[in-house]
């Protein structure tokens, strides 16, 4: 898989060399091959540390929003879900997209944090683990990835596709992307369209499985299921801290707000529901919340389930179009024509 790594590294080097960007944020090698950590690269010789394996331990979009310099031009190497988060953050004025050059890597799922992540590449129907190609067992994927139907980074400036034979295809989605590829002397090729039928079928199947069993429950049982899950909570704030959409500097889950009572473990259910209210409409189902939860609460399942309900209601797809604002912070022209207390 070195060839694709090389191409991405090349792109990053070229972006830095051409001064398109001042800094690139990407995942790379830490202490050893399987230790994957976020890197802030300013020196092109560090680009060689960048890896493209199927592992994504935190949201780079959030890192840039929190700690990136707004006046700097920043390059980002990210997965489609994180690229969607980046768009959502831009809508909330947390990042300046004009200053960001995003390189999206096509993604068929990441492996769960904690499992051996050493050199794993996931393709539509195969998985390569340390050089060995095997049919993809879906249960190695993180739960949110199994439900994902947005494998292609259409929302990034450059799109990269890894191929099972180690090859790599690169395309530009935007003018900025073209500039990047020019700088890297990579010819813009139209990528062959992907047949996503099988993958959409996979997403539908897992949604049916994950959500279906909850939906089939009597309402009261569902309530008690979630209340029981939340009772495991140790209030580490990990889900909030990991969530790319949770951007508030002043968070109303914190004790001084006295909305959620402090001095209690587990925290009241509002701790979870409060955050759900804030980001449920814009969840990109990146799964960072669930990966950060020490107690194994299926957080992303809950958020994705609500998002799937809200998306058709508000006709809103999170993370694609910068111009459509989060549904509860806006009203549409269509709204003005409707009377009554519901949106129907």
């Amino acid at each position: 898989m070195t060839k694709c790594n090389e191409i991405v590294q090349d792109i990053v080097r070229s972006m830095l060399r051409a001064k398109l960007v001042d800094e690139v944020v990407a995942f790379g090698r830490g202490i050893n091959e399987s230790d994957i950590v976020p890197l802030f690269i300013t020196d092109e010789k560090d680009a060689e540390k960048i890896v493209t394996i199927s592992y994504y331990p935190c949201s780079l979009a959030k890192l840039v929003a929190l700690y990136g310099d707004r006046n700097k031009k920043i390059g980002l190497v990210l997965r489609p879900c994180d690229a969607r988060s980046l768009v959502e953050l831009a809508k909330r004025q947390q990042v300046n997209l004009a200053n960001i050059y995003s390189i999206g890597i096509e993604c068929y799922g990441v492996v769960r944090a904690g499992s051996n992540s050493h050199q794993v590449y996931i393709f539509p129907d195969t998985v390569q683990m340390d050089g060995e190609t095997k049919p993809l067992a879906e249960d190695v994927l993180a739960p949110n990835c199994r439900r994902c139907e947005y494998m292609v980074p259409t929302m990034t400036d450059v799109a990269v596709r890894l191929l099972p034979d180690g090859g790599c295809l690169v395309d530009a989605n935007t003018e900025k992307g073209q500039a990047v590829l020019e700088a890297a002397s990579i010819a813009v090729t139209d990528m062959p369209a992907l047949d996503l039928t099988a993958l959409k079928e996979r997403a539908a199947r897992w949604k049916e499985k994950d959500f279906g069993e909850l939906k089939k429950m009597a309402a009261k049982d569902r309530l008690h299921y979630w209340l029981a899950q939340w009772e495991k909570c140790i209030k580490c704030y990990g889900c909030r801290n990991a969530c790319p959409i949770c951007y508030c500097k002043e968070c109303y889950l914190e004790p001084e707000k006295q909305i959620v009572k402090n001095e209690a473990l587990p925290p009241e259910a509002l701790f979870h529901v409060g955050r759900l209210l804030h980001v449920g409409d814009s969840c990109t189902d990146c799964g960072q919340c669930e990966a950060a939860c020490p107690m194994g609460i299926p957080v992303s399942k809950l958020y994705h389930m609500l998002y799937e309900e809200l998306s058709p209601l508000f006709d809103y797809e999170s993370g694609f179009d910068l111009a459509t604002l989060p549904p509860v912070s806006t009203i549409s022209d269509k709204d003005l024509t409707k009377t009554g207390v519901t949106l129907d």
């Binding site: 429950m217 309402a219 009261k220 049982d221 569902r222 309530l223 008690h224 299921y225 979630w226 529901v273 759900l276 209210l277 449920g280 409409d281 809950l302 389930m305 609500l306 309900e309 809200l310 209601l313 508000f314 549904p327 509860v328």
Partner: peptide
């Protein structure tokens, strides 16, 4: 939105 949320959490 809240009505949908109520439904989701039961």
């Amino acid at each position: 939105m809240v009505k949908k949320l109520l439904e989701v959490i039961g």
